[in-house]
Design a binder for these strands. Structure first.
Lengths: 215, 215
DNA sequence: CCTAATATTGACCGATTGGTCGGGCATTGT
DNA sequence: ACAATGCCCGACCAATCGGTCAATATTAGG
């Protein structure tokens, strides 16, 4: 009695996972102590060991959950309906928005990729994002075979370029914001619109001064 | 006597910095102990404190040195001679090669950006790469005013796209390597060649079925 | 050869780390 | 009513952490 049960369906385990996710998302593994996690979760440190055998297992559980959530979130961005150019525009927009909506998950997964070179990254990012990548490649190939896109480029390369543009934006928008020429740091939609437009049209004028048949 | 003086000009301080750079480059700050650094440098832990007041100062010195070295390395990639398209090709190639040649520096700086949001990242990456970014933007603007490039795109956006493509390649080539469609994971030159070509020409066929007037 | 400054060290410190242990508290099936 | 079972905690542990200090090598100058 007395203590107000703020978390009814609490299920201690979820509290722990949430606390760990929050802490692990903005500090490295060794920089997050079990004490801090227990404090954040509002429980005792010893209690964590009732649900998880050790720190690694807890971290792995958090990473697994975040990775899977992020995976489905990103997969939802691929909607292969309509003309290829529209699909690309839609994907770029949704994909970047998904990254920005759940920065904790992205940071969690990306930190793991940075630390463990290709060892554990294989288990998550590789297996976890291969489908997004494949879906994007498939869209591009369809566009090629349907004549909507040129056929003399590598679809996987374009997919990498598009994914990389979004990830890079996510990672360095805080830095880009301070650059004098950058006007899109706070406008992800505008950024993606510009990116896709450049990818589609190219930087070189169509041929000579023919020009402005843009539309 | 006895001990072979492998390092003549050793200058203890450099040994420490080198050891710390190596360790900090593939493990996070809290995951690297002063003991480990001392061991790697082949000296005693207490001796480190003769050259550096504390762990933070040592880390900061390493970060500063790596950041500056990386900065000059990347700046050298910008060579604004010749036609704009050639400059872009040359820059992309050299920039990515610089990243791949000194992965320790890149990982060091990039980890710092990941950890400290925009606080200390400002001091290094921002200040350190603003000139590369500006130079690239200047090249693109020159290309626009000279009529070699279209004028209806944002130069800063293209610069971000190009830099991001290289950084993303550097970060995730270990993952990309395992993707079925990817053939360029071990061919940075080919990757950049393809990237630049796409940026210049665009994905959409010149007009309709005119086609294959490539090259 | 002596001295003074610089390098370098082993031993040590309090604090914090991941992890353990034994026992309370509450719910539940019987 | 009672035993059982899961949940939860304070206290504790050995190991390691960053950092200090007094004492010793090593070097340079006169």
């Amino acid at each position: 009695m007395g203590d107000l049960p703020l978390v009814i369906e609490g299920e201690g385990r979820q509290r722990i996972l949430a606390a760990a996710e929050k802490l692990f998302s903005d500090k490295a593994f060794d920089a997050v102590s079990m004490n801090a996690i227990a404090l954040q979760a509002g429980i005792s440190k010893a209690n964590i060991y009732h649900y998880f055998p050790n720190k690694d297992a807890l971290y792995l559980a958090v990473l697994r959950a975040a990775s899977q959530s992020l995976r489905t979130l990103l997969n939802d961005a691929v909607d292969a309906h309509g003309a290829v150019v529209d699909v690309l525009r839609h994907f770029a927009r949704c994909h970047l928005q998904a990254l920005l909506d759940r920065p904790e998950w992205v940071r969690l997964v990306w930190r793991e990729i940075l630390e463990k070179g290709a060892s554990r990254a294989q288990e998550f990012a590789e297996q976890g994002f291969a489908d997004v990548f494949s879906a994007l490649v498939a869209v591009l190939e369809a566009g090629q075979s349907r004549g909507e896109l040129r056929v003399d480029f590598d679809p996987a390369l374009v997919a990498t370029l598009l994914l990389g543009a979004n990830v890079f934006f996510f990672q360095s928008r805080d830095i880009l914001r301070h650059y004098p020429h950058v006007t899109f740091a706070d406008d992800p939609a505008g950024y993606d619109a510009g990116i896709v437009e450049i990818l589609l049209r190219g930087l070189i004028p169509v041929s000579s001064v023919d020009t402005t048949s843009t539309r």
